[in-house]
Amino acid sequence: MSRLYGAVRKFYIALIFLFLYAPIATLIVLSFNASKTRAKWGGFTLKWYQSLFGNDIILQALWNTLAIAFLSALIATVIGTVACISMQNMRRSTRSLIMGVTNIPMLNADIVTGISLMLLFISIGIRFGFGTILLAHITFNIPYVILSVMPRMKQLNPSTYEAALDLGASHIQAFFKVVFPDILPGIFSGFLMAFTMSLDDFIITHFTKGPGIDTLSTKIYTEVKKGIKPEMYALSTIIFVSVLILLLLINYTPRAGHKKAR
């Protein structure tokens, strides 16, 4: 009975994984497809990987995407972390008001966030381009940072900060030596989350980019009708596989050490 239940559970998880990763497997297979159309298999090739590095348009879009993701995640992390620290001492009502506003970009539809920022940029008169995309991305990234730092902040034992002061540290020293290390994992995962969200965003970028600049997402969108260039599959395969390897390294190395320690 319980063995059957176990088998059913494994089968269910396998199905969900198949569902989640089938398109990804498809894209990886397509990146090695010699035929230029998606419809049929024309044999194995690496030529798309070669031509990728000669394709300046795609490389420029990649550069834009990475630069925006990194800068927006970094700035959002700084602003978000500082906001969390400052909110610690606030009255509960003030804090929940601010958190309410913080949640807006997360709960609101991307399309509304996108057009609202577009209308703002138009009325201020900023030229659309790299800068407007960056501002937009910082805006929707901050909530992710706050939501991953805040719980850490709440778990913090206030006595440790006071203990540091008691032992002669200044407020700033106490923060960086005692509080900061404790919330660092939250800050780190907030940054990672923001980076991922920025990288994957299409809708908000679509409304806040100007002509003449493209991220990978918007580049792909314009290609949807004409047909996606196979180099795009090659590039996304490279990105996916490198992230996968990185995550496996992060997740499996400390666990081996942990087991020994027990």
Binding site: A22, P23, I24, T26, L27, L30, T196, M197, L199, D200, D201, F202, L216, S217, I220, Y221, V224, I228, M232, Y233, S236, I239, F240, V243
Partner: peptide
């Protein structure tokens, strides 16, 4: 999510 959202949907 590290594989582009549009590409995944296209797939």
């Amino acid at each position: 999510m590290w594989m582009n959202f549009l590409l995944r949907t296209m797939a």
